[in-house]
């Protein structure tokens, strides 16, 4: 039971890191990253390959984060001159490119078979399953650091600027170049955090293959952010926890209701995720939490619509 709890908490911590990264990109900056799983996978594979090549955990992690952040910056830069909608499609395309590469460059990635036997760091804690608890502690430390980074960015002048840009096209247009640079940086930092999540994922399982990195991961992250409340970092933690528990919890449903096949259950779960996303967007766009705002609380986020 303890072992199970440790595993669940580890997965929640990793999910929360992904959700925080997406919250920085989408929640704070309005940059829709439909290729989230691609950056996550890139981070996981980079960390795994570096670990397998004998690099220490710190070096492997750093390498993964730098590589992924660079790709993120490139993707953001590619679409920076354009309306935000285009970033969504470019990131989606990037995710597909990563998936195809993982599948086809077997010499590097092991293809569909993936990479087994990834050495992972941990803290040697005493007691049975001590190394698992130790790894959980590492994940929680990583989560805390990620939280501090994103929270700090949200509270900095940078964060206020981003909120203003997200909520108001006119502000975005007038501020011009600086905004572009800051947005690319924000997207890259988000991608570095996705790589952090990827590295922890690779180390946790010790084995990665392309089937672990499907667009479903992206959908879960969006669900966590919208449920937690866009822009609200404490809310995101709750959102990620709830989504992860629902996903893991619904695995038991299989044992209870045996007339539902596994893939049907998966389909049902995704229908619920899709419906949940839409319902939250319509009825509770602020999510379960509240967005941090220092002084802008009195301003409406949505301008009154022109009736037509």
């Amino acid at each position: 039971m303890i072992a199970f709890l440790v595993t669940i908490l580890t997965l929640v911590a990793i999910a929360a890191i992904l959700a925080l990264a997406l919250n920085l990109q989408w929640g704070l900056c309005g940059m829709v990253n439909f290729g989230l799983v691609g950056f996550f996978a890139l981070g996981a594979y980079a960390a795994a390959l570096l670990s397998l090549a004998g690099a220490g955990p710190a070096l492997a992690l750093l390498g993964a984060m730098v590589i992924t952040a660079a790709c993120g910056a490139a993707v953001a830069a590619l679409s920076h001159r354009l309306a935000e909608e285009y970033l969504a499609i470019v990131t989606l395309g990037f995710g597909e490119v990563v998936r195809l590469t993982l599948l086809n460059e077997s010499w590097l990635t092991g293809g569909a078979l993936g990479l087994p036997g990834i050495p992972s760091p941990t803290l040697r804690l005493p007691g049975p399953g001590g190394e698992h608890v130790g790894f959980l502690v590492l994940c929680l430390i990583a989560l805390a650091l990620a939280y501090l980074v994103v929270e700090r960015l949200a509270r900095a002048p940078f964060g206020r600027l981003m909120r203003a840009v997200r909520d108001d096209d006119v502000v975005a247009a007038t501020l011009g170049k600086d905004v572009v640079r800051v947005r690319i940086a924000a997207f890259a930092i988000g991608c570095a955090l996705l790589a952090l999540g990827g590295a922890l994922h690779a180390w946790h399982f010790g084995y990665i293959d392309p089937s672990q990195f499907t667009p479903i991961v992206t959908a879960y992250a969006f669900m966590a952010v919208i449920a937690g409340g866009r822009g609200s970092n404490p809310g995101i933690l709750v959102g990620a926890g709830v989504v992860m528990l629902l996903i893991e919890g619904s695995r038991f449903l299989k044992d209870v209701v045996d007339f539902v096949a596994a893939d049907q259950l998966a389909a049902l779960r995704l229908i619920l995720i899709g419906a949940g996303l839409i319902l939250f967007l319509i009825y509770r766009p602020q999510g379960l939490g509240r967005e941090y705002r220092r002084s802008a609380a009195s301003f409406p986020t949505v301008p009154a619509p022109a009736s037509s």
């Binding site: 989408w26 959908a219 969006f222 389909a267 996303l277 839409i278």
Partner: peptide, 16 residues
């Protein structure tokens, strides 16, 4: 984002 949610629903209704 809502459209992507709708896509998930439509696709998985077919899968279900």
């Amino acid at each position: 984002v809502a459209a992507m949610g709708l896509s998930l629903i439509l696709e998985n209704i077919c899968r279900l």
